[in-house]
Nucleic acid binder design. Structure first.
Lengths: 224, 224
DNA sequence: ATATGTGAATTGATTCACAGCG
DNA sequence: CGCTGTGAATCAATTCACATAT
């Protein structure tokens, strides 16, 4: 019965809204780079490919940021969105699984740019332990619990094979990490206070397969 | 204002359903590898981390695949899902943008495994043209129109920088490709008969930031 | 007895229309 | 007047209860 203090911490915000806020933030950065100072919900909407209603409703979940009759100030709205999304501080991340993908992420310059600081990397493979990638040395997986508290690791990129994903997720959450960016093409289950976001290239590829295929498929007729 | 253009599906099937079907297929493959022959909606649901109602409703959009009182035959349901998802045939794909990510995808063995055949790669950079990655040679971008028809390219992985994404998408759709797997962290707009699926690691990372940050944020108090 | 398949109820998200403020 | 902010209406998705088949 969620009737009482509906004003508590932001619950009940559609996760589609969060995704769109990220798009709005990108659009604003682009507009700002072009020297634009003001923006209307209409312009923002067309750039983000949603309706203006949607833009205003999404923003309204978090407060009122515009001026009636005028619109929004680009830099102001951009700052508000960064604040809402938790992007005004650094996040300390580690990579678990230093295969091809883990190595690529360790070298990715975009991380630093967006204030995500890579502070550790882990792998089970003895031969990889001690090697350096990007700014970090690879550690053995059993160092994870101590490293999480010593280095204050807040998020982990899970880049291990499917067969190792659940065990690795258990180790990560057992060590106290509350956020997992899961690149393994599988469902991982975690305690309720841990958040998992999936980055699933193969699933996206199969969705594409479905939608391209779709036009040629006739659904079964339940005429019985 | 995007009127009428239902971005979901053409047949009224929730796109969340399509995503879940992909998960069910993975679960079934796992169960089959373990020698299981029968499965109930309950088991499938718990493995996929959804409700059994959801599993049955998702399947019901496409037909009836189970036996009352018994459940589903693993191999049969797996085959049906592959058929529904368009995964019973090969798909011919090309990569546009042979930077780090494009190169990594060209080498990725998972593509072949899932019947996605890489038939071409493109880049604007003169110095990359002619080099080989995986099974293909890099071509100049202006060869795209002829290559699409000659090689029957059906999907493209868009792995170019954000600033080049829209122009590249225009070139791709102009050449007649109907499916784009967009890895660039930006919205690309395409004609209504083209499907775009996004693989957006930075967006997932920012969603994680939001949800971890969330607990510490107090929404604005309208006492001004 | 058991587990699927499905109309109906419920919950959630999006769209709308216009009130409210600059 | 113009454009934001928001309750109300519409639309979509999920949950449920149970009839139905083996």
């Amino acid at each position: 019965m969620p009737r009482g203090g509906a004003r508590g911490t932001s619950k009940g915000i559609p996760s589609a809204t969060v995704s769109r806020l990220i798009t709005y933030l990108r659009v604003l950065n682009g507009l700002e780079a072009n020297g634009l100072e003001r923006v209307s919900s209409d312009l923002l909407a067309s750039e983000a490919q949603v309706s203006a209603f949607q833009v205003r409703k999404d923003l309204a979940y978090f407060g009122t940021f515009g001026t009636r009759g005028t619109g929004y100030t680009v830099s102001n709205l951009r700052d508000e969105l960064k604040r809402i999304l938790g992007l005004t501080r650094q996040w300390r991340v580690a990579i678990v699984g230093m295969g091809r993908l883990g190595q690529a992420l360790a070298d990715y310059p975009g991380l630093v740019e967006y204030d995500f600081e890579l502070v550790a990397a882990f792998d089970v493979d003895e031969r990889k332990v001690g090697r350096g990638f990007g700014t970090v040395l690879v550690r053995a997986l059993d160092e994870l619990p101590s490293a999480v508290s010593e280095l204050d690791i807040e998020m982990v990129f899970l880049t291990v094979p499917v067969r190792a994903a659940q065990a690795a997720a258990d180790a990560v959450t057992g060590a106290g990490v509350k956020g997992i960016l899961n690149f393994a093409p599988t469902v991982v289950s975690v305690p309720p206070d841990v958040r998992v976001e999936n980055v699933d290239f193969l699933a996206a590829l199969k969705r594409l397969s479905y939608f391209l295929h779709e036009d040629g498929v006739v659904p079964e007729d339940p005429a019985a």
